[in-house]
């Protein structure tokens, strides 16, 4: 029991790194994803092809490889570019590199979600908006975007939880600086000390589960707010079926 509490205390520091990686990459990824979705739907062949290719490449390859690729690319540019600029310590730091790659990755996944939602926006509403003489930007702000975000929100919630789970591999690909270790590295070092796999990995899993549940709860609140114009769905009923 004491060991369990010790682990809980030790990992309460570590989980902050995972939360940081997720929190730093989600807002930027969100904005980028909107542009990617618009680009994928754009009639301009160059923009269309580029965004399509980008989304396909980043969704079709493992995040682990993307981490290695971008980190080693940054390393090989170190002497030529970062060093003379005097920012090599900043650029090569995992706290910068991690969110950078996560942003590139999540933007592709979220962009695909938004693109799907964009295509599902009711045609008639857009036509009505055009009939009212709204400009392109008015159409987007007042008709397309509110529909899009409502359609995409459940899938986007899943993507955010997946992104949070993906922060587990950041430090397997990037170097650990000093005592800055996330949940997985902490669990692994603790395991290598006393070989108690069940305790340490379970505590790390508990933290991941807990944060995932919090994310689901918060995003659920936002979803309720987004859907406030609709009649409330029927409440969950507790009606256990012991034997069917």
């Amino acid at each position: 029991m004491q060991a369990f509490l010790n682990d809980l205390a030790l990992m309460s520091q570590a989980v902050l790194f995972n939360i940081y990686f997720a929190a730093a990459s989600i807002p930027i990824g969100f904005v980028l994803a909107v542009f990617l979705a618009l680009g994928k739907a754009s009639p301009n062949p160059i923009i269309n092809r580029l965004t399509r290719g980008y989304i396909y490449a980043f969704r079709g390859s493992p995040l682990f490889i993307q981490f290695f690729m971008f980190y080693s690319l940054a390393l090989s540019l170190n002497i030529a570019v970062w060093k003379p600029l005097g920012i090599s310590g900043f650029v090569l730091h995992p706290l910068f590199m991690g969110p950078l790659v996560l942003v590139l990755n999540t933007a592709a996944y979220t962009g695909e979600i938004f693109y799907g939602a964009l295509r599902a926006v009711p045609r008639g509403e857009v036509e009505a908006a055009r009939a009212y003489g709204m400009s392109r930007s008015q159409q987007f702000r007042r008709v397309i975007w509110p529909n899009l975000i409502r359609l995409a929100w459940p899938a986007y919630t899943n993507e955010v939880v997946f992104l949070f789970h993906a922060t587990a591999i950041v430090y397997f690909a990037l170097p650990v600086v000093g005592a800055q270790a996330d949940l997985m590295i902490t669990a692994k070092t603790l395991f290598e000390r006393d070989y108690n796999a069940f305790l340490h990995f379970s505590v790390a899993a508990l933290y991941f589960l807990a944060v995932s549940l919090v994310v689901f709860f918060l995003f659920g609140l936002v979803y309720q707010r987004l859907m406030r114009h609709l009649p409330a769905p029927p409440r969950m009923r507790y009606r256990p079926k012991w034997m069917r």
Partner: peptide, 18 residues
């Protein structure tokens, strides 16, 4: 599904070995 795949991927072989 609520836990990262890496965690389970590392945990299962270690736990099985132990």
């Amino acid at each position: 599904r609520g836990v990262p795949d890496v965690l389970f991927f590392l945990f299962f072989p270690l736990a099985f070995e132990q």
